[in-house]
């Protein structure tokens, strides 16, 4: 190699590194990437098997089959979670439009959770009471709120960490192209 050309190697390496930084900054700027948000390891996989009680009725058992069958949201929430309260109104709105939402009540007190739903409204078709956080662990939940988008086959298609709002719905969940319209028809059954 020409000796002069060899001196360009450091510049070349720097250019590559700078390009990486530029891409990162752009992806952060566009909201595509957030270094503090971890992509879910469960994307593309089925909802893990579980066997837990319903929030509203400790005697009744829920398993994965109860929530699989249509495109739906699985929302992880708890009464100790302040941000959950902030997103609750939007969940109510989505539910009223007929979007099926299942709740995963995560490491919470049963009585307090029931009271919360009575006071703020219940957007959930069904609530799984996960006192020990075992389903949470299998899903890779690391905080609340988190919302999982599940398709009709029970495959996890997307996970949102943090407050779910209209912007997230429009920019992240709608582009997944799931058949929410079918759900709308079923919404009458609420």
């Amino acid at each position: 190699m020409n000796a002069r050309l060899r001196l360009f190697i450091p510049l070349l390496i720097f250019a590559v590194v700078a390009l990486v930084f530029l891409t990162l900054e752009k992806r952060i700027g566009s909201g595509e990437y957030d270094p503090s948000n971890l992509p879910s390891a469960m994307l593309g996989q089925s909802v893990p098997a579980f066997n837990l009680s319903r929030l509203m009725d400790a005697e009744q058992v829920v398993d994965a089959e109860d929530i699989v069958g249509q495109a739906a949201l699985l929302n992880v929430w708890a009464t100790w979670c302040i941000a959950c309260r902030a997103e609750h109104a939007y969940l109510n709105e989505l539910a009223s439009q007929g979007v099926p939402i299942f709740g995963l009540n995560y490491k919470d007190e049963r009585a307090a959770a029931v009271q919360w739903l009575q006071r703020l409204g219940n957007p959930y078709r069904l609530n799984i009471f996960d006192f020990k956080g075992s389903l949470g662990l299998d899903l890779g939940v690391y905080g609340a709120p988190e919302t999982y988008v599940i398709d009709a086959q029970g495959i996890i298609r997307y996970r949102h960490v943090g407050i779910l709002d209209a912007k997230v719905w429009r920019e992240k969940i709608e582009p997944l192209g799931l058949q929410w319209a079918v759900a709308q028809a079923q919404g009458a059954a609420l």
Binding site: P10, A18, E25
Partner: peptide
């Protein structure tokens, strides 16, 4: 972030370019 990146590109990129063009090769 963008500003420092720009500054980095000018300072580091510029000096490495200068290095590539002017450093002794023998």
């Amino acid at each position: 972030g963008m500003f420092i990146l720009l500054f980095l590109a000018v300072t580091v990129g510029g000096s490495l370019l200068l290095y590539a063009l002017r450093a002794p090769t023998i």
